[in-house]
């Protein structure tokens, strides 16, 4: 199918330049291949979450068993909740801070030290996870010993830290793309910069903030290595739970949870997508 289309585009090169200028041979095939590669594992895990058999290798019969079992599995439940809690709080904190930071780096005149500030914001991206994990473990243990404070705050702090650059990138990109004239006009219209920000800049910036928050959330909820070293008692996140299961073989219960997560996220993202569309 795709090939024929491509060929016909080639042949119509002269006739319809506008459509065809963008065309690069093979690119659409690669894009579709990319989609297949991205989705193949997902399809497999969704399918096997409905497999009646315990083995995750051979299909026997359709059943809801693993969903029921996962629902009753306290370990999975609390790990999922913990993951959601940590990811939500970290993503919100990181997005707030990243938004503020991005406003500075794009909306103030460059000053001495701004570049180093940007470097610092990107720092978590530059350090391989295992290094951060070990460093944070030692550091947090020292704080715990000195202050005696325990709790999930440490895990959230660590997640917030590595989420900031991920939230920062799309917000900064959006701010750079935004038309400054609009903001200047707003600055003239409204008495205070805060009002101008709230009425004009913020709404325009919203798509950037949403994608920043989503990216931060995803990065947080997927994290294994740093969580493994930082998490305290009762702070097993879903990836940690799965990691603990590996020695005994991952059961389709985990696939079932993953499928549920996937479904929720698809619904959530669809809603955001549709709401955004209606606003336009």
């Amino acid at each position: 199918m795709v090939d024929i289309k491509a060929l016909s585009r080639w042949s119509s090169f002269k006739k319809d330049k506008l459509v065809d200028l963008k065309y690069q041979p093979g690119f659409s095939q690669i894009a579709w291949f990319c989609m297949v590669v991205l989705y193949a594992p997902i399809v497999v895990l969704v399918v096997f979450s409905f497999n009646e058999n315990r083995s995750v290798t051979t299909w026997t019969q359709f059943s809801w068993d693993w969903y029921i079992k996962a629902w009753h599995n306290e370990g999975i439940q609390s790990a999922s909740l913990m993951s959601l809690e940590v990811a939500t709080i970290s993503a919100i904190l990181a997005t707030l801070m990243a938004t503020m930071a991005a406003l500075v780096t794009t909306r103030t005149q460059p000053y001495a030290g701004m570049n180093s500030a940007i470097t610092i914001i990107n720092q978590p991206l530059m350090v391989p996870e295992i290094v951060t994990a070990v460093a944070t473990l030692i550091f947090f243990a020292a704080i715990r010993k000195v202050t005696g404070i325990t709790g999930v705050g440490y895990l959230i702090a660590a997640h917030t830290c590595f989420c900031i650059p991920f939230a920062y990138m799309p917000i900064k990109a959006r701010l750079e793309d935004m038309n400054l004239n609009l903001e200047h006009a707003a600055a003239d219209l409204y008495a205070s910069p805060l009002q101008a920000f709230r009425r004009v800049t913020l709404p325009l910036l919203m798509p950037g903030i949403v994608s920043g928050a989503m990216l931060a959330f995803i990065v947080s909820i997927d994290d294994v290595v740093i969580s493994l070293f930082v998490a305290g008692p009762g702070e097993t996140t879903l990836p940690l739970f799965i990691l603990g299961q590996i020695r005994r073989g991952v059961t389709p219960e985990v696939n079932a949870v993953a499928t549920v997560f996937l479904l929720i996220s698809v619904i959530l993202v669809t809603i955001i997508f549709l709401v955004g569309k209606n606003k336009k």
């Binding site: 005696g148 097993t236 940690l240 590996i246």
Partner: peptide, 18 residues
């Protein structure tokens, strides 16, 4: 809570105040 290896456990608790 689960650990995935004895080493992880030891590294974590040997820092104290786990």
């Amino acid at each position: 809570d689960d650990f995935d290896s004895m080493e992880t456990m030891l590294a974590k608790v040997s820092q104290g105040a786990s």
